[in-house]
Design a protein around this nucleic acid. Structure first.
Length: 490
RNA sequence: GGGUCAUUAGCUCAGGCGGCAGAGCACCUGACUUUUAAUCAGGGUGUCGGAGGUUCGAGUCCUCCAUGACCCA
């Protein structure tokens, strides 16, 4: 990586031009200058604007010199537009300024709109002001910037050089704002709960630990917003949501970043079936609003987000894809034997039926779930915050939604029995003591809240980055996070 | 955590079997008043990711390290 004092030849030349400009009395970092239009407005309203004077500002992306005239391309927030400068049309100083310009410089300029011989909408320049001299060479114009190391560390260069990258992040913004609008219009209240907390609860994950100096205590970055949001349901809010970052201290992969964006919502007097409907309706609504359709393409596969989505219990799904019916599996030993026959290697000696069922599901079923599918009725062992099924206490009213083989949502009828919740936490503590660092932490204060009484509640979490990946046809989570977590460059 | 691949000019990339470091764009000099990957004539601007090793000689082979991508866990 270049440092400011690594001056290469190109930078030396540009620094000389900077000095030349100063010697001419031109401030190479001029004050703002108002613009009247952006590139898109000029191109979109050519009929009205032809021969009219406009002012525009942006970055020079190409210069095609012709001696006493030149064309250059200006890139602004909305796109590119061509500029024509002719010595006869401008002051001597302006033409001198043109001669000291480089690709990358930021300028504002004014002139008349016209169409060139080749039919390109162009501004015939009559005045120009330099707003920022660029001292470093831009990435190559034709191939763009490909080096992922530079693209992620210096995302600004990626955004300048690769228009499709900018488009992805524009779409990300639209998805998030469409989601907010959908929830707001459906009566949900957006709230903010602590990022720093003495207990990192609400999910099975290892937290980041930090230290508060004044209180001289360890604090954890949140791994979920769940337990705080449900306290608000206890407090009488009936529909709340939070959209923000969670932090999980785990590896980086094509679908994991240590900090990621999650939307969690909770609705009193609702259950997980309501959450299924909310999920499919909201995702379809967002797709329609942002992309104009619920039939999308992801990495070459057609995905139909139109509700209703497929629904299968976990047992049904495992039976469908492996032929094994866990309804008739009644002992942990039998479950372990089946897992062994299926070559599921993660199964431990202490694992119970429910855990093994889930492992088989993850290994043999997930890879088949391309079209949107709700998998519901999760084993109780892996669902310590979800309500037990009345007719089968080995399972809970919980579902996850899968699209393109990836989990995109997790939801349940929330466990609101404080006595059961206490037992479940105790079970998690046992598992932690047995070595599972991802087991849930006992949150006594949360149990206290439940003891005051929480209405039946449906809760839902949607991974925003994965949703954005789906709707922007992005292969890696790093392509939808502006500044993904990277090791510092030595 | 393990494996595979990659790292060469500002960017995108070539460099057979170990023998003088290359191209396009960008940049510099000159020509050019409607071009658009402008064109034409010239110019190579480099710690070949880093440190060791083998060798008469290493971008190339070996070891370690760093960073990234992908696959696996």
């Amino acid at each position: 990586m270049d440092h400011a004092n690594d001056v290469n030849e190109i930078m030396k030349v540009r620094l000389q031009k900077l000095q030349d400009l100063k010697n001419m009395g031109i401030n190479p970092f001029g004050d703002k200058y108002p613009y009247s239009h952006n590139s898109q407005q000029i191109k979109g309203n050519f009929v009205e604007l032809e021969n009219q004077k406009v002012k525009i500002a942006g970055r020079i992306m190409a210069i095609r010199g012709h001696g006493k005239a030149a064309f250059f391309d200006i890139q602004d927030d909305k796109g590119k537009i061509q500029i024509y400068i002719k010595k006869d049309n401008v002051s001597e100083d302006t033409f001198k300024l043109y001669n000291l310009l480089d690709i990358g410089d930021i300028v504002s300029l004014g002139g008349k709109v016209f169409k060139s011989k080749r039919g390109e909408i162009t501004i015939s320049l009559d005045m120009m002001k330099l707003l920022a001299k660029s001292l470093r060479p831009m990435p190559e114009k034709w191939h763009g910037l490909k080096d992922t190391d530079i693209r992620y560390r210096q995302r600004y260069l990626d955004l300048i050089a690769n228009p499709e990258v900018k488009q992805t992040f524009l779409t990300r913004s639209k998805i998030i704002s469409a989601m907010r609008r959908y929830l707001d219009e459906n009566g949900f209240i957006e709230v903010e709960t602590p990022v720093l907390s003495p207990i990192a609860g609400g999910a099975a994950a290892r937290p980041f630990i930090t230290h508060h100096n004044a209180l001289d205590m360890e604090l954890y970055l949140r791994i979920a917003t769940e337990l705080y949001l449900k306290r608000l349901i206890v407090g009488g809010f009936e529909k709340v949501y939070e959209l923000g970052k969670d932090f999980r201290n785990e590896g980086i992969s094509i679908k994991h970043n240590p900090e990621f964006t999650m939307m969690e919502l909770y609705q009193a007097y609702a259950d997980y079936k309501d959450m299924m409907e909310l999920t499919e309706n909201m995702v379809a609504h967002i797709a329609k609003e942002v992309l104009g359709t619920t039939k999308i393409n992801y990495q070459g596969e057609e995905i139909d987000l139109t509700p209703p989505w497929n629904r299968m219990t976990m047992i049904e799904a495992v039976k469908h894809f492996t032929g094994i019916d866990f309804n008739s599996v009644n002992s942990d030993e039998e479950a372990r034997r089946i897992a062994s026959e299926l070559h599921i290697e993660e199964v431990g000696n202490q694992d119970t039926i429910g855990k093994i069922l889930n492992l088989i599901f993850e290994e043999k079923v997930e890879e088949n779930l391309v079209q949107p599918t709700f998998i519901y009725d999760y084993p109780i062992e892996i669902s310590p915050l979800a309500k037990k099924k009345e007719d089968n206490p080995r399972f809970t009213y919980r579902f996850e939604a899968f699209i393109t083989r990836r989990e995109i949502a997790n939801a349940f009828s929330e466990l609101n029995d404080p006595i059961d919740q206490r037992d479940r936490f105790l079970q998690q503590v046992k598992e932690r003591e047995a070595g599972d660092e991802e087991a849930h932490v006992f949150d006594e204060d949360y149990v206290t809240a439940l003891e005051y009484g929480m209405p039946p509640t449906g809760g839902l979490g949607i991974g925003i980055d994965r949703l954005v990946m789906l709707l922007t046809d992005s292969y890696s989570i790093r392509d939808v996070i502006l500044f993904p977590t990277m090791r510092p460059k030595a």
